[in-house]
Amino acid sequence: MNFAVISDNLLYFMVGSWPNGPIGGAALTVLLSLASALASAVLGLALGIALSQSKGWPGMALRTVLGFLRAVPVLMLIFWIYFLLPVVFGLDVPGVGAVTVALALIGGAYLAHAVSAGIDSLPRGQSEAARALGLGRWDALRLVILPQALPRMAPSFVNQWVALIKDTSLAYVIGVSELSFVATQVSNRVMVYPAEIYLFVAAVYYILCMIVEVGIGRAAARYRIRPA
């Protein structure tokens, strides 16, 4: 093993050709992850709340859309957004944007079911009690249901965000120079150190995922509510 190849190329692994070119490497992976995690959380919360509140055909329609997003491979969705939108709508989507949108949609669809299940997991009496006091549906949800349901959803959010960090590596297929893309570049250039390079890449992904896991775990523990 010769890890000099890592230290020689460390800056490139971390930030790509920045500041002389666009930001890349691990920094881009982090940015992609942050943007799509945030967007998937907002989308997942909104759709999950809608899912738990809607019955009949609107609920069915929503379920169908979510089912579709969960069934599509991430790679396929990235391709569609990157290649199809410009053809069909004449929209020119930058690679980074296409990946973020694809991951946000798929992550949001998964999270929507977790959010909806979290809301439904509370005893029916809680929302009855809130409504019996005269709170409207939205206030009952915001002030009584979600503060109890959100900490219960934390493990699902960790799962989803960890999966999402790793899925950012799929961005390489449309030439977005995130961590696994620059790693492949370096590996192809130096030819003889793939084991060292990909071990290093795995370690970086591991650290990123652990940060999410520990961070969310701590936050959830602080807000965890003992049921009465």
Partner: peptide
């Protein structure tokens, strides 16, 4: 209204 299972808000 008072419920069988109290339904106080635990948070």
């Amino acid at each position: 209204m008072v419920f069988q299972h109290f339904e106080l808000f635990p948070h």
